[in-house]
């Protein structure tokens, strides 16, 4: 048995490499701890010929914590509820339309380009925050691991091009930018706009939580309609 088959290996290696990239990020803001840690570990497994199953013995301990982390999303929703209430109509309307639009466009484009239904369900939930998008994907026949990667990439792309693109297209209102980013780019986008203003971060965090709930609810009727 290789030493990598002990759960300690997966947990320790992941935490150490992640902490290293977090530290690097505090010096260079363009560093992405999640993507870079994953890439380093993938390379390591491939080069050292360690089976992914061995790594996952420890890794699954870490991914288990996604459960409590999803429940924890309730805290920012609750804390910002009072402030959000003042313009709840535009905010709620925007999140609802945005979540529908994201789900439908992702699914229809896949089918239109000749993709399969499992591919459509892999892509559709990707604007929801990752623990939710993975679960929706699993529930309706997508590939949850792939959904997780695509969700992270979507969040990353949205957080980089979202705010400048919105301003370029004439969207300058902070609430509008916050809702648009939170609805499409979940936690990664929220962290990005939070750097610009506290209010945008709050609106974006709220939108991300609600989008997660909306996406998981809207998925069912779409599934029943034959998607």
């Amino acid at each position: 048995m290789s030493i990598a088959a002990d759960p300690l290996f997966g947990i320790a290696v992941t935490v150490i490499v992640y902490a290293l990239f977090l530290w690097l990020q505090s010096r260079m803001s363009w560093v992405q701890p999640l993507l870079m840690t994953s890439a380093v570990i993938m390379l390591m497994l491939v080069i050292l010929r360690i089976p992914v199953e061995d790594y996952q013995k420890g890794g699954s301990w870490l991914s288990f914590l996604l459960g409590p982390a999803t429940i924890a999303l309730g805290v920012p929703i609750y804390k910002n509820a009072e402030q959000i209430r003042r313009s709840w109509r535009p905010i709620l309307g925007g999140i609802t339309v945005g979540a529908c639009c994201g789900l439908l466009s992702a699914g229809l484009i896949v089918l239109w380009m000749g993709g399969t239904r499992d591919m459509a369900w892999t892509l559709m939930p990707k604007s929801a925050t990752t623990p939710i998008s993975m679960e929706v994907s699993r529930l309706y026949g997508g590939y949850p691991e792939l959904t997780a990667v695509l969700t992270v990439l979507t969040g990353l792309a949205g957080s980089i091009i979202g705010p400048p693109l919105l301003r370029l297209c004439g969207v300058t209102d902070e609430t509008a930018i916050g809702v648009a980013i939170g609805t499409t780019s979940h936690g990664i986008g929220t962290a990005r706009v939070l750097k610009d203003s506290e209010w945008m971060g709050a609106v974006s965090g709220f939108s991300m939580g609600l989008t997660g709930i909306w996406v998981s609810m809207l998925a069912l009727p779409l599934h029943l309609l034959g998607l």
Binding site: P90, G93, G94, C101, S105, A106, I109, L165, A176
Partner: peptide
């Protein structure tokens, strides 16, 4: 699909919320 389904809801949501506000 990934690129279009990111940009479309981004802009639609941004425009909608701003015009309502």
């Amino acid at each position: 699909s990934g690129v279009i389904s990111l940009l479309l809801p981004l802009l639609v949501t941004g425009w909608l919320v701003q015009s309502r506000i």
